[in-house]
Structure formats: structure tokens, C-alpha cells
């Protein structure tokens, strides 16, 4: 019944990153494969959109979250952030059958 083959074996660093993902309860706001909270962006393919350095910086130097004026995104230390981004990079390799729907990229890419 279960046919959950990974496209490639999962690296140790990504496994560590998965635990960071769980420990910090990221899924309460973000989604992976569209499953999770509704308050923040889906991160399944975030590493396509943003560079590794940007993502690690974002996690370490957590910015204020829109539309809040003070509340910041939860912050991680450097190693945890690297592991987490490694996990996100791994997730990006999982085939999702054309989801999310592709559109003409109107804007973005910082």
C-alpha cells in the first residue's frame, strides 16, 4: 500500500534538519507538500526561489514578521539553520507531480 520511495537516500544532515523542523514546530505556520499551517508560505520548493545563504541568514538573524511590528520569526543557531536548509534542499528533490501549479513568474526573486 505504501510506495514511499525517496528519489535518493536522505543525507544525515537533512535528517538532522528534519528534527530541527519538528522541534521548532515549523509546520504550525508553514506547509510542506501543502500540509500544515495556513499562516506562512509553503517551503517544499523554497530552495528554488531563494539562495542557501539567504535562507540561513533569515533563520539566524530572524526578521520581524509582517504585519507585526515587533514579533520576530523564531531564530535558530548557525548549525541548526544549516541543517534545516539542507533538509529543505532535500525536500526540493522529491517529485510532486506538478504541484504547486506553475505560473508565469510575475515578480519576485530577491
Amino acid at each position: 500500500m505504501i510506495s514511499a520511495k525517496l528519489p535518493s537516500s536522505i543525507p544525515e544532515q537533512a535528517v538532522a534538519g528534519k528534527l530541527i523542523w519538528q522541534k521548532n514546530n515549523c509546520v504550525s505556520c508553514h506547509t510542506l507538500f501543502g500540509h500544515g499551517g495556513y499562516e506562512a508560505d509553503d517551503l517544499t520548493h523554497i530552495t528554488d526561489a531563494e539562495t542557501t545563504e539567504y535562507l540561513i541568514d533569515f533563520l539566524v538573524e530572524a526578521p520581524v514578521m509582517r504585519p507585526h511590528k515587533y514579533a520576530r520569526h523564531p531564530a535558530l543557531d548557525q548549525i541548526d539553520a544549516e541543517n534545516l536548509v539542507n533538509y529543505l534542499e532535500f525536500l526540493n528533490t522529491i517529485p510532486t507531480l506538478g504541484w504547486p501549479p506553475q505560473q508565469e513568474q510575475v515578480e519576485d526573486d530577491s
Binding site: 505504501i2 514511499a4 525517496l6 536522505i10 528534519k18 507538500f33 500540509h35 532535500f90 525536500l91 522529491i94
Partner: peptide
Amino acid sequence: NNPIVDEA
């Protein structure tokens, strides 16, 4: 460890 199995 496997995120797909985890989701499923």
C-alpha cells in the same frame, strides 16, 4: 527519517 513515509 523519510519525510514521505512520515507524511503518509
